[in-house]
Simulated assay, not measured.
Amino acid sequence: MTVTITILCSIISGLVVWICQQFYSNNKDRRTKNNLNVVNLSSSKKIVTSSILIDLKPGRNLELAFEMLGKPLKINTKDSQVFTNKEILINSYLFAVKNARIKITSKDKTVINSITIFPTDSSFRLEAHPNPMNNETITFNQSKLDRQIDKEWQHTVLVARHDESFVLTKYIGNSLYTTYTYFGDIPLGWRNYKKIHNTNGFINGFIKGICLSDTKEDIYYIYAYELR
């Protein structure tokens, strides 16, 4: 009888130890998996330059974005068009690198339809690209709009709970066939723009971001809430 009890106690003790080990192992696996899904905005050491607008321009293969930028910070199946302010079904990928936040959209998960970039410092320089002032070079977060804004650029303002930006856009034909859109500060505020409906209120506003897209309908912004 004593031997039987001893054997049973040994079996029960062994089961308890095994269950505890399994519980610990499963928790560890879950923590590891969860950690892999978390992207720290400040952890990426990648730095992008203006060449990304060529490498990942509309029409390029979406897989190139994952190869160059790594794992997206967020993936959404909806996004809001800038000019219509309508939320539509589209695959939207948000990336974070050391010197920029980048959004790429694709209608079919194969081809890039737009790329939006908001540099986080003044290291991102754009040379020989169309812009509202026809300048040879633009340095984001440093260059300001002057009074020579090309009248061919369409304009509006984007206003959200934590965002306020001017929007200047123009379709560039031969040989780029791309819609260029610039975002930036509104020194006189969006309410002033709504009253006068011209770009005077944009003067001296810092240029903050850019979007290259197939069409005017494919322009997308990076909102503050998306970076939380």
Rank of each mutant, 00 (worst) to 15 (best):
S122L: 01
Q142A: 12
I115A: 02
D29I: 14
N204L: 07
S51N: 15
F140W: 06
E164I: 03
L126K: 03
I138A: 06
K216T: 05
R161N: 13
K195T: 14
I222P: 04
P72I: 04
D79W: 09
P119C: 06
Y180L: 01
G70C: 01
G209P: 04
Y93R: 01
W153I: 02
L145I: 03
R60L: 05
V167Q: 07
I11H: 10
T105I: 13
I75L: 12
I104G: 00
E152C: 03
I90R: 04
S92W: 04
A100Q: 08
S143C: 06
F118H: 02
M68Q: 13
C9M: 14
T105P: 07
G184H: 04
T137V: 14
P58C: 03
G173C: 05
I196F: 14
H155L: 04
L227M: 15
G184K: 03
V39T: 14
S42P: 00
I112V: 12
T199G: 00
I219C: 08
S42Y: 13
R125F: 03
K103H: 06
I11P: 06
S43L: 07
S106L: 09
R161S: 14
K78Q: 15
K107H: 08
A65L: 01
L158A: 06
A128M: 11
D214E: 12
N99A: 04
N131E: 08
D163N: 15
D150I: 00
K28W: 09
Q81C: 12
K86V: 00
S42M: 11
I149G: 01
H162L: 13
I12F: 11
G14N: 07
I88C: 04
P132N: 07
I12A: 15
K28T: 14
S13M: 10
V82C: 09
A65P: 01
L53Q: 01
G189S: 05
S43H: 09
I54D: 13
V167I: 10
G201W: 00
V48M: 11
V167W: 07
A224K: 14
A65I: 00
Q142F: 11
K144I: 13
N204V: 00
I88A: 03
S10H: 08
N26G: 00
T49L: 09
A160F: 08
G59Y: 08
E63I: 12
T6L: 15
T6F: 12
C211R: 02
A224T: 14
S25A: 15
K28G: 07
I12C: 12
I117A: 05
T77E: 13
S122G: 06
L212N: 05
N26D: 12
G189C: 05
A224R: 13
E136M: 09
G70H: 00
I102W: 03
V82Q: 04
K216R: 10
N34W: 11
V17W: 09
M1K: 12
L8R: 12
L158H: 14
Q81L: 07
I196S: 11
L73V: 13
D214L: 11
L69C: 03
H162R: 15
L94E: 01
L69D: 00
G173F: 02
T199D: 07
E63G: 01
K194T: 12
K45T: 13
K107M: 09
E67N: 12
I52H: 08
F183A: 03
S10R: 09
S165M: 07
S143L: 05
V16D: 08
D108R: 08
L41G: 11
